[in-house]
Simulated scan of single mutants.
Amino acid sequence: MREIADRLRAWNAANVRYAVATVVSVGGSAPRRPGAAMAVAADGEAAGSVSGGCVEGAVYELCQEVIRTGEPVRHSFGYSDDDAFAVGLTCGGTIEVLVQAGPVPDAALGAVSRDEQVAFVHVLPPGKGLLVVWPDRHHGTTGLADADAVVVGEARAMLDTGKTGRISVRCRDDLDVFVHSYAPAPRLLVFGAIDHAAAVARIGKFLGYRVTVCDARPVFATPARFPEADEVVVDWPHRYLAAEHERGAVDGRTVVCVLTHDPKFDVPLLEVALRLPVAYVGAMGSRRTHHDRLSRLRRAGMPDRELARLRSPIGLDLGARTPEETAVAIAAEFVAARRGGTALPLGQIDGPIHHDGQASSAEVA
């Protein structure tokens, strides 16, 4: 959608009728991934691609059919053994395409063009509507009032991690949706190149984060020691974090784990981290280290309201001993902090298991 968003906005402004074909699943060596989109206008103009050329002609015809009828169409394409020139994918893969009539809301297209966080939700089997989900609001409906709140919650969870894919809706056995997220993965910033950092990096990657390990000591901060990390940075932690904030690479989904438990690194880093609008700041160390760290931060002029954001000693009380167990305890705490969980055993609390919250009813022009 990103490559055709501006064209669709122009069609909207000119009141041009059009249809959009979206790849909702692929198999084998299909040339494009889920979310690839192609649009066809009533006057015949086309924009985008769903297959790199293999089935564009057939999808073009489907789009024209949808423009005529207004009814959505879902169709699968694959290689034909009987006729290599038949409509299909000669690469041997398969793709499933959903074609729906426009218009796509201008607010959604603008968000895509500006690289904002937004998810497009398509109902499978095909419905006529398009549900557009932002972190704080949504536009449209699935057409099923009892499913909207759940679908919005599921879509936000996928948007939060930048994931695109097809999911089943847990409250409706007969309902699947395809969620196309426009968002980078959230960041996990691990400071301190120690054994525990390697375990935290592994679990962070498993949870869908883009993981950075940072340490000022080049002998420890090496890619070989942290193969699961997306990047390993040699720099003073506070300087690196401040620079990342300045370039807009830190946001309200970012998790900061301070594992050095050395005041010459920790204190300047926490002075920066606790003043940033990040989701979580945790610091490793004993209770004595924690109290000493708080005293140093207070002497540095940090007020109690900022210190209250610090999760220290880091992690939940799981009785963890090994680096891997400690990483689970740390991840459990920042997941609970980000999702609004209680961190209590589910058997000890009442109420819903999933913290979907109330789906916003706000509509966007």
Rank of each mutant, 00 (worst) to 15 (best):
G102S: 03
D43K: 05
D266H: 01
R187G: 11
D43F: 05
R114L: 05
G53S: 05
T90S: 15
L8V: 05
L310G: 09
D174S: 08
E96Q: 07
E45C: 13
G27R: 15
V211W: 08
P184A: 15
D81A: 14
V133H: 09
P218D: 08
P268E: 15
G70K: 08
R68P: 00
G110Y: 07
V133G: 04
A107I: 02
R225K: 08
R296S: 06
A242I: 07
A337C: 02
A300V: 01
P227K: 09
Q64P: 00
S360D: 11
L297A: 06
A193D: 01
L316F: 14
R170T: 03
F334H: 10
L89H: 01
P277N: 13
G48M: 07
P352D: 13
V16P: 03
V219C: 11
M1P: 01
A243T: 08
R217S: 02
I4Y: 00
A47C: 14
A327Y: 09
I314Y: 03
A21C: 08
R298E: 13
A201S: 15
A343Q: 10
V133I: 07
A243L: 05
G153K: 09
A221W: 13
G340L: 07
V40C: 07
P223C: 01
G162S: 14
S49I: 00
D82E: 10
D350P: 02
H261A: 15
G35P: 01
T94W: 07
P345M: 05
A119V: 13
G248P: 00
S25N: 12
Q117A: 14
T289P: 02
F77V: 12
C54W: 04
R296V: 03
H261R: 11
V87K: 04
L89Q: 00
I203K: 02
T141L: 13
A107N: 07
V233Q: 04
V278R: 12
P125H: 05
K264G: 11
